[in-house]
Write a protein that binds this DNA or RNA. Sequence first.
DNA 1: TCAGCCCCCCACCGG
DNA 2: GGGGGGCTGA
Length: 809
Amino acid sequence: MTSSSDGTGTGPSSAPIIRDDLLRNGNPRPSGDGSTDRGAAEGDGDPLLEGLNPQQLEAVVSRTGALLIVAGAGSGKTRVLTHRIASLIQNREAWPSQILAITFTNKAASEMRERVEALLGSRAEGMWISTFHSACVRILRREAEKFGFAQGFTIYDSADSRVVLKRIIKSLDADVLGFTPANASARISTLKNELADAESFARTANFSDPNEAAFVEIFRQYQRTLRAANAFDFDDLISQTVFLFRAFPDVADVYRRRFRHVLVDEYQDTNHAQYALIRELVRAPEPDADALTGIVRPGDEAASLTVVGDSDQSIYAFRGADIRNITEFERDFPGAQVILLEQNYRSTQNILSAANAVISNNFDRKDKKLWTADGDGEQIVGYTGYSGHDEAQFVADEIDRLHRDGLEYGQVAVFYRTNAQTRALEEIFIRQAIPYRIMGGTKFYERAEIKDAMAYLTAVANPADELALRRILNTPKRGIGPATETGLSRFAEDNGISFREAMRRAADLGLGPKVTGAIRSLSALLDEAAEQVAEGKVSEVLQHLMSGSGLITTLRTSRDPQDEARAENVEELIAVVKEYQKNNPDSGLIDFLTETALVAAADDLDDASGTVSLMTLHTAKGLEYDTVFLTGVEEDLLPHRMSANEPGGPAEERRLFYVGITRARKRLFISLAMTRAQFGETAVAMPSRYLQEIPAELIDWRQSPGTATSRGGTQPRALNAQRGGFGSSGSLANRPLTEKRDWPNRVTNQVRDNGDLELEAGDRIEHTDFGQGRVVQVTGVGTKRIAHVQFDTAGAKKLLIKIAPITKL
DNA sequence: TCAGCCCCCCACCGG
DNA sequence: GGGGGGCTGA
């Protein structure tokens, strides 16, 4: 049992300002009885409680040990969470360091942090607001040495895992059994999400099945390789933290005592490993009695747990999310309080009606209808382009129009199902001079040249990482081929030394003088860099590695025209490092590597307010924008072809569509294309089945998919049967459209190098896609000059002069 | 033994 | 469109 605060020791638990009764788990607050019928008057005078509806207020002030907030889209969930955190701090019920708030995406984490900081100012420091993965890395880095890893362990991304698996599969000839790096990786990932490891799996495996026997061996070797490389993959970060807590209860207790308030966002998306981690964290620590006084200190009870979720927004089944975690919360945590937030404060009624109509097609759900008191708003706008580029052009034109009417670019988001769809959007946006930023994509860090540069840093930070060493061994080309690589590897094995040590002893391998010299100078470069690390400056280390290795120089002098851009990317990485260092003066090389491994893009380093945000529907969850473009609403994309035939697939894809719709505050655009490029080829696309689930009167089709038939002609286009088909506001209804020439407003993705073409107001130009027009105005300088053109038939457009496919007449 | 070239095969979503 | 594997020429 908890005694009263003694007020003498150190640490928050002894601070007199902490209200002991409130730290106690499960105790009612002095001022309340836990009923949801709490008058708003209670919030009077406290800015943190003002303007909350009764349910939101209860969710902020409730202090039961376990709290589930069922929050429909736009119901003020983030507001409730951030105010709840802020009120804990403000009322001195907790120190910031006692708060652990977990989200799924980096974007959501930085958003929550910003909002808490806005409420509290600098008092938010010391709070852990992070993704599951970053929280686990922080714990693992501190405790790594307790279980045989060095503190500077590497985090392998999925591509790294596949390289390892590829080698293993090849060495075992397991490819004949149907193993590929991708499927083996997926299988291992699924197991790790269930907290299985190679040995526990082996215990239940059926070894008479050659496939299963081979898989056990692959799994074992994979895990052995990672351990030898002092590396964790993404799934390990969670599962190993759970194993750590279970194996070392005293270590777990440190975190259990520290985090008195654990809050989990998007709880419906937790998988078993994440669930287990939460359970471990909110378990009561062993009593920590003061040996001298015998006083048991407060904080020895289980931490309070707040989870927020909405089963209609569960979209991560593909990585093991288990909806039961939320549906069975009350059984898991007896005495838990449940609060429902249903009123929507984000979207117009038209948008909500569309969302309600769509999601009601999912069975097995508790009926729930979002509603707003704010009115119908504008109709949803629909558009069908001939191709992905036409669709992108429509999006660009609408953004341009809205921007001219005063809407900030930062208030606009474009969503899509797959990252591949960004290409067409980017090509058109660049040509149309629309500032955009791709959120959440890992693209930059997935580029080969960036991975190369990062591998140099990794090799310095974690010399055990053979994968990183092999990657840079012959990058740039220095005449060290596969034979030499294998030779080094064998030499290391034969002599019981690391690959890195084998490089130092290259002279003993009996290789040619040229190759030996190449290995030794690389080895020396890495040694120099390692010494430099101790002095601090990560950017200098990277610059030294880049100039010493000649990576940038090689790219600059290459004959391949694309290498120039690659060199610039590496330069940009150096700039990123410098920027990182400026913002995090106390952070070292390992911190930087962790950050880049876990934080998809450098997107929270920059303020994106002046740019349109492009992201996948998955990244969009939890965010909101004034204006939303939901693109590629086609069969095979949404639902995606990989999900359409899986059990639960179409329902999950519908939730994804629902998530996208409910992000919009005022304006929602839904678009699709008749044809879509994939594999570099163009295929016919059909409207998504979900489109017909939106009541026809809610959508204003600027250009309807109508009754156009697919090229195969065996099926009418999916939608015309319902509700009399699409509105015929577009001129295309009831007219088969199979030929591109029948389709108006079609654009290409052509660009042209216009060099230093000079344009001024009044000039006439001709554009490949838009025909003739008159230049109204020219803005910007140099390569960023933009022509504002009034086309004779295509309307007003902005064009980036340098690359637009235009000629001066 | 290595570099260059061609061809094939692929591809959902995130940390 | 692009990365990786396999083949060929030096």
